[in-house]
């Protein structure tokens, strides 16, 4: 009972601190005379834009089908009939004579704003990099444990080189040097840099995961007639994967965050989109908070998915 009260008390303390933080941010923005304009943000995520549909030629409205939202326009000069579908507002009725350029209908267009496009780009670049990073990490991790010195030294060299230099520098090298030599576009160069960078960290996770499996597992698998590859695929890696899921999740989340650095090579990811929106809205606080929130949504969804997976894999415990 006593502890329960205590718990409640500290939860209240937590909420109080969070409130203070919020108030603090608000007050400090007042102090620097900042006017919050949150209403400007949504349009950069999604906007509804009216699209005017104009007559392409002189003619008459031959048919209006209200139910199917479809009108047909016949030309005076023998052009093919012009058909408009899925309009939201109609400006003519059946039999009307129209001239070229007249507005005959309006459509409402849902447009994704730059922040949404940025989010999609960030998602795309992270997902593609992740796939390659996993492949690189798996093979380098295995090479790291190989008895072949060439493979072992190669993997160690790669891991040390990548972990010893900043990602930003690697992105520049990939874009300006390797990208020029191999004629890579921005996206490919960005993905390559992120995959190679993350792959080095995943390799270390894979190595430690495999090493954490009791050698008896490999012996049991081999003594049943499996070759090394079969033993790895069916016995060692499934166990290692389960054990390395938490550090892998951390690495995936890092990858999403690290992807913001590709904005330096003019890939319009979420961060670059944020910068562009700031320059057109003059609402930097709101934009950066919104961008942070969007990153949080991505990373949060990923954490959640991996936790689900962990629960499912825990069935054998």
């Amino acid at each position: 009972m006593q502890t329960q009260h205590n718990q409640l008390f500290w939860k209240a303390v937590f909420i109080l601190i969070m409130l203070c933080l919020g108030v603090g941010i608000y007050v400090s923005s007042k102090a620097i005379d900042y006017t919050w304009r949150w209403e400007r943000i949504p349009q950069y995520l999604i906007s509804i834009e009216p699209l005017e549909i104009r007559a392409p030629f002189d003619g008459s409205v031959s048919q209006v089908d209200e139910k199917r939202h479809r009108i047909t326009l016949d030309s005076d000069y023998g052009d093919d009939p012009f058909v408009v579908e899925n309009f939201d507002d109609l400006h003519v009725s059946e039999g009307d004579i129209v001239f070229e350029g007249d507005i005959i209908a309006r459509q409402e267009h849902w447009n994704l704003g730059p922040l949404s496009w940025g989010l999609i780009m960030t998602l795309k670049i992270s997902a593609v990099s992740l796939v390659f990073a996993m492949i690189i990490g798996l093979f380098v991790g295995l090479a790291r444990l190989s008895s072949n010195p060439a493979l072992r030294y190669l993997s160690v060299t790669y891991i040390e080189l990548i972990r010893g230099t900043p990602l930003l520098v690697q992105i520049f090298i990939f874009y300006f040097f390797i990208g020029t030599v191999l004629d890579l576009d921005r996206f490919t160069a960005g993905v390559a840099a992120l995959a190679v960078f993350t792959g080095a960290y995943i390799a270390e996770i894979v190595r430690s995961g495999i090493q954490s499996i009791n050698p008896g597992q490999m012996e049991a698998a081999r003594s049943l007639g499996m070759n090394y590859v079969q033993a790895m695929i069916y016995v060692i890696l499934p166990q290692a994967f389960k054990r390395t899921l938490p550090p892998l999740a951390g690495q995936f989340i890092n990858l999403i965050k690290d992807s913001s650095l590709v904005s330096v090579i003019s890939i319009t990811d979420l961060t670059k989109a944020g910068r562009e929106v700031v320059s057109s809205t003059f609402a930097p606080f709101e934009v950066w908070f919104a961008v942070a929130l969007l990153y949080l949504v991505l990373t949060g969804a990923l954490s959640w998915a991996i936790q689900k997976l962990e629960k499912r894999l825990a069935a054998s415990d």
Binding site: Q217, A220, A221, L224, Y234, P238, Q239, S316
Partner: peptide, 26 residues
């Protein structure tokens, strides 16, 4: 090794497989 079965002191069952799964794998 297919023809030579081995049983270990520490069992070395595959923990991610059921009893039947262990027996069926190889």
């Amino acid at each position: 090794r297919e023809k030579v079965g081995m049983v270990f002191q520490s069992f070395n069952l595959f923990p991610h497989k059921t009893a039947l799964g262990n027996v069926m794998l190889s």
